[in-house]
Design a protein around this nucleic acid. Structure first.
Lengths: 251, 251
DNA sequence: CTACTCTCTTGACCCACATCAAAGCCGGCG
DNA sequence: CGCCGGCTTTGATGTGGGTCAAGAGAGTAG
């Protein structure tokens, strides 16, 4: 039975076509191959969620956990709240990425997920996915990889927060967003930062002011051009030299 | 078929007896019940590793991933190295805890694991565990919980690193180690910090000096008594008030 | 016993980033 | 149009914790 190379589906996903009417799990997750009929089986349990507007909650902390979510378009952030009311942005999720894996441990979401802009999200019931795994041998391993990747990403963020200064943090995040947009190795590349300076700062453990200042300085130094949320990386090598820790580049 | 309540095995684990000659997975992981024969099946794939001396590596970063490890006695730390040679302590693992889940995503460990003192560790081949899951329905879900817990723990550390000052960080860690030692709600409790001040600081994103100063001040304020690595919490409530973020208390 | 090393503690100083403050920019709406 | 509220930028000032330096213990080897 022929395998479905990921490349194909992924291309379909990054430039959506009519035929790609449903999210395809295989295209969202890590690069392994599934049998064609398995891809279909997996896809059949995926629900297309209603579109999210900016500020809409996908789920709240304390909600019962029943599904993970794949971002089709737009951007979603996850935040965790501490006892004393502080909020920590724990992740940004771009198209093709999976969120909602918090909650697997306790069956309750520990984060809230909020759309940063108009977004489309697919819902993947976790129990059904788990059941399907009994018939599709690779699927469980696949899900483990998914969670393992989340662990890896978080460890890199921990290192970043623990060991880096403001320049390194901001540079790292710019490179991360850029490469997750598929602009991995272009020497000059521009993209949109979908989140506010406040969200950026919160995620990176910095204040709004520091983020803003750092971006301004990067611009003066000719590393980037920044117009509000539109960013152009003009000196990739210099930016890379700043960001010794590569966030999200693991897999 | 009767279920094996976790309580029983766990008690066996925390005060090892002759009959508990092998680590029992069920006793190490999250509180779910397995059928008795399933517990045996799972245990049958577990290898008892050779004892580790202080400073010994359990595995190195870049090693091929083939197993996760359960700490039976002693303490193990995991560290991640950045491109430019900095090292980040990503976790401390006490008896009954599982490490090695980094590497699930890429089949290569991204951390190194090092014994902080003489330690005994069991090796659980991941592939075999995964295979067993086909016969033991709960097992896969169990492993998901395990990884989900790791994700939760890391998110709490991220919040701690991003939002807290030195006092909060140190207080949080003390409470975490204390409760993981089983001294959860005793108003006066003492325990041993198995890691050096340097490791503590590295983990918490602080310098050795700051850790030392903070502990000294806690002592002056009557929150704790500290004699080198021996710690006694003398004012639990005050310490709790400092540490708004509860590390490792999720599950 | 001394000498050496490693870890921990304490003090003095300094700097990166937080905080406080103010002004610019932009979109929405009456 | 002009007003208002949110987001961003920039400047001025303050401070928590990093850095540097010097001892103090404690363990180990000789």
């Amino acid at each position: 039975m022929p395998k479905t190379p990921l490349q194909l589906i992924q291309r379909c996903h990054s430039t959506p076509t009519v035929s790609c009417s449903q999210c395809r799990l295989a295209s969202i997750c890590l690069p392994i191959s599934l049998h064609v009929e398995d891809v279909d089986r997996v896809d059949s349990i995926i629900q297309r969620g209603r579109p999210l507007q900016k500020g809409d909650y996908l789920y709240h902390a304390q909600d019962k956990f029943h599904a993970v979510y794949a971002v089709r378009s737009g951007t979603v952030k996850t935040i965790a709240s501490t006892n004393d009311g502080k909020e920590q942005v724990t992740g940004f999720y771009l198209p093709g990425e999976i969120l909602g894996l918090d909650g697997v441990a306790t069956n309750v979401h520990t984060n809230s997920a909020i759309a940063l802009e108009t977004s489309a999200v697919c819902e993947i019931p976790f129990d059904k996915l788990d059941e399907l795994g009994a018939h599709i041998p690779n699927l469980h391993r696949h899900m483990f990889r998914l969670m393992g990747r989340e662990i890896g990403t978080e460890q890199q963020l921990i290192t970043l927060l623990s060991k880096s200064n403001a320049d390194e943090r901001v540079a790292t995040l710019l490179l991360s967003i850029s490469s997750r947009n598929g602009r991995r190795n272009l020497s000059v590349t521009s993209f949109r930062l979908p989140m506010s300076r406040a969200d950026l700062g919160n995620y990176l453990g910095l204040t709004v002011e520091t983020v803003s200042r750092t971006l301004s300085r990067f611009q003066k130094q000719g590393l980037i051009e920044a117009d509000k949320k539109e960013i152009t990386i003009t000196n990739l090598d210099a930016l890379r030299k700043l960001a010794d820790i590569s966030l999200f580049d693991c897999a």
